[in-house]
Design a protein around this nucleic acid. Structure first.
Lengths: 344, 344
DNA sequence: CTGAAAGCGCTTACAG
DNA sequence: CTGAAAGCGCTTACAG
């Protein structure tokens, strides 16, 4: 692999001059010299060494994205948003699936720091873990010391995200939509309490119920995980509880898919007996039968805005936090309640 | 951000010695010295500069994965497989969604080369594009010149994948399963011909039909894209064609989901009137209603094996190509055919 | 417009 | 076991 030294030699110029043309810096070089350098670079199949360049700049055009799991559609959409925005600026993106494990997360961020990544974007929700929070704070300081940026797309231990979504408002809005349809007994499949975004969505559920003058029956709020399996377990727990409910609002679409599947297995019709709603609007939400009603979040845009925010931060700008809008999407999994509520 | 120079000074040793302990190289350092260096590193929150290290080694512990689209479950699963295997070795993974655009793909590979990535893994199928093939060949040479590895997980222009899956056998096996159920009129929703893996799956369909003594009616083979929308369009095309068919085999699960959705819209029952089968076994295949029958591919393992292969290649080993097995998974979307075939 | 040279932060023969 | 020094491939004041 040829270096700039060889390009310079072949073009008959100094490496300083060669560097100035191949690096496309804004520095005067005569057209003839430029052409000679370009020709030499082409002939030698010269590809600049980004490590050497990064060593100089103490930063490499790479951004890391910390996600829960890249196979979760919410995160793959966000990553795609980051990727497309990043590609336009010549940045590459590193995906880190932490499985919400504090140790994995810390280890990834450390690796990203060692690579002198330009930015690290936290796509997933923060975890309420003091030790992790403290270690991350150190890494953030280090990253920033090199001119790097740190951006959160979800609430976290130390504060509000730089670019966020309307978790609470979205949840409240869906409850409102359900109430408008005539539902009063609305169960909620909540996510683990340690996750900050889960707290917001739960708060939205409560706020929506309160706004409708409805009392929250705590037995109708069950906390489980965030995947389809959690939806299955959640439905079972709710049914075991023996409480009647005509609608089931789930923390995420994935949970809702699991819940729908379980209800179907049990012979409970959706939305005939129970309406089901999700959150996120992943692409599969409209491929199910019935198609899932949900709260749409602009996931791709979230990623793109997150990257843009990071770039602005690196440029030294002071920025306000921004929040992207939600949209309640009513499809076929929700309908007015039947006369007799579902029972176990 | 402190460098090894500061660590060395604080520990009262040379940078050579400091380097030897923090880099964990196999080189004798007295226990006392080692402890002093480690303590200094800790106190200074020292994080080694991977760029400087990579500049020396002409390679950085990062592997790039070229995918069609990270939001496609097939690819996110493969990437996750790579990620987990890579994390164990201290490697980071860069995701590149090329949308199967030769220009994007070439541009990503060039960036990866400029970063001196240790390996690039092509998760998606090769594209039959001579210009791209030629440019890639140059990049591969460059990558290898630095001791890097190139691994394909799908057939490509220049040959068979280093780690592959049974596209043809899997397709033939599903046809066999369908034939066993009693189907004779089996339509195939094929993928674009430029994609090498698509050719293999189509060949499997033909081989399966032939093995069953069935003639392939070319009007029952329609070529469309690879997403859910292609499934919708494919069903319409087949129905417009007016040919009867009792089973519909699709190039991928995503296509099958779209096809099932369209059939449902048209009031055609699955599997009552038409059986539908997919390929891949993405996690959503069992969340649909009816649950999708499909040919399971070990996607995560494919990613993991791909990474392992790359590591072995970097270690200078000569390796044989390996093929991972498929498994026909029969769920609820397939059943014996009705007496009257579906008609438009 | 062009170039010589220092320096980014490491690793690794080489000498002791 | 320890260290001085060269070198990886660039960028960028600085001088001309």
């Amino acid at each position: 692999m040829s270096s700039i030294t060889e390009v310079a030699r072949r073009a008959g110029v100094s490496i300083a001059t060669a560097s100035r043309v191949v690096a496309e810096v804004d520095y005067p070089v005569s057209p003839a010299t430029r052409a000679r350098v370009l020709e030499a670079a082409r002939a030698l199949d010269y590809v600049p060494n980004a490590l050497a360049r990064g060593l100089q700049k103490s930063r490499i055009p790479v951004v890391g994205v910390i996600v829960h799991d890249i196979t979760d559609p919410y995160f793959s959409e966000v990553v795609r948003g980051v990727e497309d925005a990043a590609a336009k600026g010549g940045y590459l993106v590193i995906t880190c699936s932490s499985d919400r494990d504090p140790r994995r997360e810390a280890s990834y961020v450390r690796l990203l720091r060692s690579m002198r990544a330009s930015a690290v974007i936290f796509a997933g929700s923060g975890i309420d873990d003091p030790e992790l929070t403290e270690e991350l704070a150190r890494h953030f300081a280090g990253l920033r010391a090199n001119g790097g940026a740190v951006v959160h797309l979800s609430p976290y231990a130390d504060g509000t995200p730089e670019v966020g979504v309307q978790n609470e408002d979205g949840a409240a809005a869906m409850i409102d939509a359900l109430v408008q349809m005539g539902h009063h007994q609305i169960a909620y499949l909540a996510a683990p309490r340690q996750l900050f975004f889960a707290r917001e969505r739960l708060a939205g559920y409560r706020r929506g119920m309160k706004a409708a003058g409805l009392e929250v029956d705590e037995r109708l709020v069950v906390h489980r995980g965030l995947d389809a399996a959690a939806g299955v377990k959640g439905v079972d727990a709710l049914l075991d509880g023996g409480m009647g409910f005509t609608a089931l609002f789930c923390s995420t679409d994935l949970v809702a898919l699991g819940a729908m599947r379980r209800l179907r297995e049990l012979g409970i019709s959706v939305p005939g007996q129970v309406s089901v709603a999700g959150f996120d609007d992943i692409s599969f939400a409209e491929m199910t039968s019935p198609r899932l009603s949900t709260v749409r979040l602009p996931m791709r845009e979230l990623g793109a805005r997150g990257f843009a925010h990071a770039v602005n931060l690196m440029a030294g700008k002071t920025l306000m936090a921004e929040t992207l809008p939600h949209e309640v999407v009513l499809r076929d999994s929700t309908a007015p309640p039947p006369h007799t509520p579902a029972r176990s």
